[in-house]
Nucleic acid binder design. Structure first.
Lengths: 201, 201
DNA sequence: ACGATTCTTTATCGATCGACAAAGAATTGG
DNA sequence: CCAATTCTTTGTCGATCGATAAAGAATCGT
């Protein structure tokens, strides 16, 4: 043990890395960019985080534990499928359009156009998105079992539908579509779920 | 004029470049990748297309004139807003999931995570997406004026809604969600428009 | 036939990519 | 105080990035 103590705050550096990767993506953020954003010489970054890819994975984990964790939180905290879906979508919009923060979803936009050598990163994020889609589908199936949704509801299709919309919200937010318009569109989308609701459940 | 005639087919080379950029994006495709994909030494590529960025812009234009032109074609050829929207979405899915072709939408995925020096490319594609959103909104407004849609229809919101969904479809297609599931979700989404339709119009 | 023009080939340019070697500085346990 | 350990600093590594200079090859107009 022992040795010279680290002079910088690792958590704080990780937050800065998350913001950099969130803004410009994995390949769009060079080590030189990170050196500049974190205010640390590259050997200090490598000593603390291993490699650029390791740092990115930690940054995504941090994102998902906080700003990007709305889906998980909605699933864990809301009592009905209907409330899970709406809260997830509305918090997505809030996160994707927060002033002074990177726009859009880090998981959607940080590694879409990647060179072959970074396919592992690309697939890793894709799996995160697919897992999110699957968790939404599962929650809707639960809603059917609970008697919240009509028994003939196609939960997989409905889950795909909301997952697709959520990923589209990230694209629109990045393009600068204002949050009011995104919220308005969610109101339209919620009607598809309301139509499947069993009244008084 | 005059001079030695070019030995390769420029159009054919452009198609190969479009496929490469469509698959891996602007920055994900290096000049070395293009040299390999086109089967041409780099000076021949520069002589024929100017620069990597010029080639990319031509490749996107080719994409939009053909595979990626479903929105424009639907808007031009379908008689009602209802038919424009459905055809656009269904052709989008077909294009995004065609076997043996790059998955997803080139305009959505070819330049999302870009280094600062390629911001111009990123913004150029963003403008294409925004223009597409706007054209959908315009078509729905026309539908209201035509008496196809109820007079109190919020065309902007409905247009945002379908544009968002379409961009989400590209993400899902890239992630490997099968086309049948994407078509099923479109059926759900069409109900939002059907609810605004004036019967017998 | 011949100069002008254009394309093809070969070799390479400077800049930047992610990553690290080596040495100096600071702290620990003994 | 000292040896061990860890962090910081300086300098730089080979590979790859997009792009081009220069020379040879092929076709044009005259």
């Amino acid at each position: 043990m022992a040795g010279r103590p680290r002079e910088f705050d690792r958590d704080q550096a990780l937050e800065k890395a998350r913001d950099a990767f969130w803004t410009r993506g994995y390949e769009g953020t060079s080590m030189a960019d990170l050196v500049s954003a974190l205010g640390l010489a590259s050997p200090r970054i490598y000593a603390a985080f291993g490699s650029k890819e390791d740092l990115f994975r930690e940054a995504v984990a941090l994102y998902e534990a906080n700003e990007g964790g709305f889906a998980t939180r909605a699933l864990a905290e809301e009592p009905t499928a209907r409330r899970v879906i709406e809260r997830m979508l509305r918090e997505a919009v809030e996160t994707y359009t927060r002033p002074g923060w990177p726009q859009g979803c880090m998981v959607v936009s940080a590694a879409t156009n990647c060179a072959v050598e970074n396919d592992s990163v690309l697939h890793w994020l894709a799996e995160h998105r697919l897992a999110r889609t699957a968790s939404i589908v599962e929650r809707l199936k639960q809603g059917v079992r609970d008697g919240e949704l009509k028994p003939d509801t196609d939960a997989e299709t409905l889950g795909d539908y909301y997952a697709t919309l959520m990923h589209g919200l990230s694209v629109q937010a990045r393009d600068g579509v204002p949050k009011e318009r995104l919220h308005a569109l969610i109101t339209v989308a919620m009607q598809s779920l309301d139509a499947r609701l069993i009244q008084g459940a």
